[in-house]
Write a protein that binds this DNA or RNA. Structure first.
Lengths: 215, 215
DNA sequence: AGACTGGTGTTACCGCAAGTAACGTACAGC
DNA sequence: GCTGTACGTTACTTGCGGTAACACCAGTCT
């Protein structure tokens, strides 16, 4: 099997191996949740730790690779929902629903992605706050912000506004989804409708209840 | 010093000690960030590990105690902002600003609270998804939901709606704040205004840009 | 053929943090 | 004086991330 055949056939054997390892990692994360150890993943793949480290550097590297895999898949689904040929409200609802359906379908993987526990080599900066935390959320926030900037006319300061909104909406979706996944207080459709209502300003429009601020 | 004096004076010596330990923990978390070890905390308090474990059970217990402290403080501040005698928009803005000012003032503590790394005793349930994850967010979400339910007239299904919105808004605030803290793309006031605008439905009101879905 | 190289795999170890056991010590109340 | 209880210690176990050192098996160059 020479190079020409390899490129048409599939990837180089190393990449093939990497895929297999990632799939094994996926399986064990699915089974054991976020606390999956490198040993367990290696065992699932039928090998031992050092090989994992040769392929991914450190646990963060494996995490990153897994995250990119799933994030790409999720983002593709979200983009599809975002690009549907209907009105904005419907697109927003279907995007929310897509996200929620995804986390509902594989909560273990989702939690692994969201709570990485981070190690960080401490980049000699006493205050590298910000580089931590779920990159999945960041990516989704950035992408959504971009979509908003591309499609909605926000007037002056549009770009900054769109990014803020992207991250804010993603955070809203995430927190509400996380809570909902734990308590299941209502159907997915109800949740979607409520969140869309929130984005549609129903909080601002609703009247006060009698007996408000008591002084 | 008998019981009568103790209760008027201050707490029992054990509680006093506990406070001291928590303050030491606070200091080291402030200094070392979320990766603070039990050893480091014990050293800062001038004692050794087992005492910490006697007081707090395990690291989760210490984390929980710390979280409750800070969450209580933060929630008190938020409630104050929420209860200010002005119109709803102003109250929302001041609440957002209070939260952002807090995380800006002590990002290390904030990150420690948000990324606990969880251990979990694995409650023989293969799927205890939900009990994990930052309890701070959950609590803020619940409280905000309660405030909304108390003060805003949402008609039928109000309670469920209010809880969803509580968690959603808190998540929005958190994600946007987290991102903003890392990149500082704008002033705090700008961020507050943009987020309030989002909640006020400006996303729904804004017109499309020319050249929308291009498929 | 035989040495050289690169990739795959191993065992055995280090360092470090969580958590625990066992022991020591002061000081209450009988 | 003796005993329980709370405070404190040292020294250990366990488990995980990460690494070093070595072994094996292609091909490949001379």
């Amino acid at each position: 099997m020479d190079i020409a055949q390899r490129t048409t056939d599939q990837q180089t054997p190393a990449e093939q191996r990497r895929r297999e390892l990632l799939e094994a990692a996926d399986r064990v994360v699915l089974r054991d949740g976020p606390k999956a150890s490198m040993n367990a993943i290696a065992a699932e793949a039928g090998i031992t730790k050092p090989i994992l480290y040769r392929h991914f550097g450190d646990k963060g590297g494996l995490y990153r690779a897994l995250a990119i895999r799933h994030t790409d898949a999720l983002l593709a689904a979200l983009r599809a929902a975002l690009d549907a040929p209907s009105d904005r409200r419907r697109r927003v609802e279907s995007t929310l629903d897509t996200y929620l359906a995804s986390i509902e379908a594989m909560p273990q993987v989702y939690r692994f992605l969201m709570h990485p526990a981070e190690e960080s080599h401490q980049t000699e900066q006493g205050f590298d706050v910000g580089r931590h935390s779920a990159p999945l959320l960041r990516r989704m926030g950035e992408e959504l912000g971009q979509v908003i900037a591309e499609r909605v006319d926000l007037g002056p300061g549009a770009e900054a506004q769109a990014r803020i909104w992207g991250h804010g909406i993603v955070g809203m979706m995430h927190a509400a989804g996380d809570w909902w996944l734990g308590e299941r207080p209502c159907s997915r459709a109800d949740l979607v409708r409520s969140l869309a209502d929130l984005l549609w300003g129903r909080l601002a429009q609703a009247p006060d209840l009698p007996g408000g601020p008591a002084f």
